[in-house]
């Protein structure tokens, strides 16, 4: 990343409910669980990862978005990789 890119990064008004498209691949923290699925909360948007290991709460993961509803800001995804275990 160049110095200019570092300076310019984040120089905008970022929404509290970011939206994603099916097929997007993201890096994020797993922020919680609802009992049956892991939850990845990004701002006030939530992506569920069904059937994933509950011990991954707080881990940093790579995930692929499978579907996202831009009106409710909720989506589903699938775990691609675990980048960093929970602390």
């Amino acid at each position: 990343m160049s110095l200019f890119e570092k300076l310019a990064a984040g120089f905008r008004l970022r929404t509290s409910t970011p939206t994603y498209e099916a097929g997007d691949e993201l890096t994020a923290f797993v922020t919680g669980t609802n009992g049956s699925a892991l939850l990845v909360r990004i701002g006030d948007s939530v992506i569920e990862l069904p059937d994933a290991d509950p011990s991954l709460v707080d881990a940093t993961v790579r995930l692929e978005v499978e579907s996202f509803d831009a009106s409710t800001y909720r989506g589903r995804g699938r775990l691609v990789d675990v980048l960093e275990e929970a602390e």
Binding site: G10, F11, L13, R14, T15, S16, T27, A28, G43, T60
Partner: peptide, 13 residues
Amino acid sequence: WTGYGREYVPDRV
């Protein structure tokens, strides 16, 4: 309040 400068982890690690 406005999100000025806010960055999420998926935006930039």
